[in-house]
Design a protein around this nucleic acid. Structure first.
Length: 326
DNA sequence: AACCCTTCCAACCGCTCGTGC
DNA sequence: AGCACGAGCGGTTGGAAGGGT
């Protein structure tokens, strides 16, 4: 069924929001609470469509939003969750309540993809070197089995790599070694345009309201209503993903889910046996896992990161599949 | 200074899902 | 069951800003 646009009527303003519009919207939400977006433009006189109002609120005006550069723990959390959940940004955002799904999505597309691509290149190159060395060593010992052994080993490695790429949703195997993964260049227009700072001010205006309003809607639920409709908020996506280890084929389903939501969408997917890969990919995947959690890993850093939910522990407690995946 | 290219992100668009009738 | 509608999600885009020549 073809639906008319939500804002076909009258002249609807598009483009960047002005501080005046923000104030009007914030004032209205202060009085009525978020929701019933359809009525917001009518009641406020804003020449914006309901979707635009909702987006403006959820992405910028609602209290508790953290703007600016992502911290390293946040970064690793996103990478980890993206591998687990795919491009389900709202579900991912539910683990970082201070960040919006839009922010996370943008950050993934503009920063993390590149970073991971580079990091993986490092790992793969190292992996290939190891394989070559192992192969030559093996030749001396098992000449009779050489052909079969090498073939199987290479197949296993290839499958493991493919699984890794798919799990991390990379476009394709990269071809250059990264300079420095852990020292991202500062964002060149940082997070604060002239107007961004005024939205911060608007958010500050809301602080009294939020602190005094116990019935304030859950901020994470704002961006995860859909997930919660199938369970318990965004977390459910996670739980459901890992709560069925007794089901036959569950690992395959989960990996397929990840591949379905990955950047392989619309591209020719790698031709490999994913079931076999799940049993063979531990080596390469564990390297990424190690990178994700060592040094300033999530578990340690969560203590310092307000609003960062400890997904890693949750995963480990919930199911062994996460272990299987990595 | 002027132009071009790249990067980034706020906002939009199209689609799906959930709900009520 | 089928339709209409509101809400939310993820992909995409427009344009501003920075960097290079």
């Amino acid at each position: 069924m073809v639906r008319p646009p939500c804002c076909e009527k009258v002249e609807v303003k598009k483009g960047p929001w002005t501080p005046e519009e923000d104030i009007i919207l914030v004032s209205y939400i202060q009085q009525h609470g978020p929701g019933n977006w359809r009525s917001v433009p009518t009641n406020t006189g804003l020449l914006r469509c309901s979707k635009s109002c909702r987006l403006r609120w959820t992405n910028y005006l609602r209290p508790g939003i953290k703007r600016g550069n992502f911290t390293q723990p946040e970064e690793k959390m996103i990478i980890h969750l993206q591998a687990l959940l795919g491009n389900r940004w709202a579900a991912i955002a539910s683990y970082l309540p201070q960040r919006t799904d839009n922010d996370i999505k943008n950050y993934w597309n503009t920063h993390l993809k590149k970073k991971l691509k580079m990091k993986l290149e490092n790992i793969i190159n190292k992996d290939n070197t190891d394989i070559t060395e192992m192969s030559s060593c093996n030749n001396n010992k098992r000449i009779a089995n050489k052909g079969q052994w090498e073939k199987k080993l290479q197949t296993d490695i290839n499958m493991a790599k493919q699984a890794l790429f798919q799990a991390l949703s990379l476009d394709q195997p990269p071809s250059s070694i990264p300079p420095d993964l852990d020292s991202p260049k500062p964002h060149h227009h940082l997070s604060t345009t002239t107007y961004a700072s005024s939205t911060e001010n608007i958010s500050k205006l809301l602080q009294n309201w939020t602190s005094s309003s116990s019935s304030r809607p859950n901020t994470s639920s704002l961006s995860n209503n859909r997930s919660s409709s199938t369970g318990e908020g965004g977390v459910l996506d996670h739980h459901s993903l890992f709560s069925s280890n007794s089901e036959s084929g569950s690992v395959d389903e989960k990996l397929n889910l990840m591949s379905d939501t990955s950047v392989f969408q619309g591209e020719s997917k790698p031709d490999f046996d994913i079931e076999a890969a799940t049993t063979d990919n531990q080596g390469s995947l564990s390297l990424i896992e190690k990178w994700l959690f060592d040094e300033q890993g999530l578990v340690q850093c969560n203590d310092d990161q307000e609003g960062l939910i400890d997904v890693s522990l949750e995963v480990k407690n919930n199911d062994n599949h996460s272990q299987d995946l990595f």
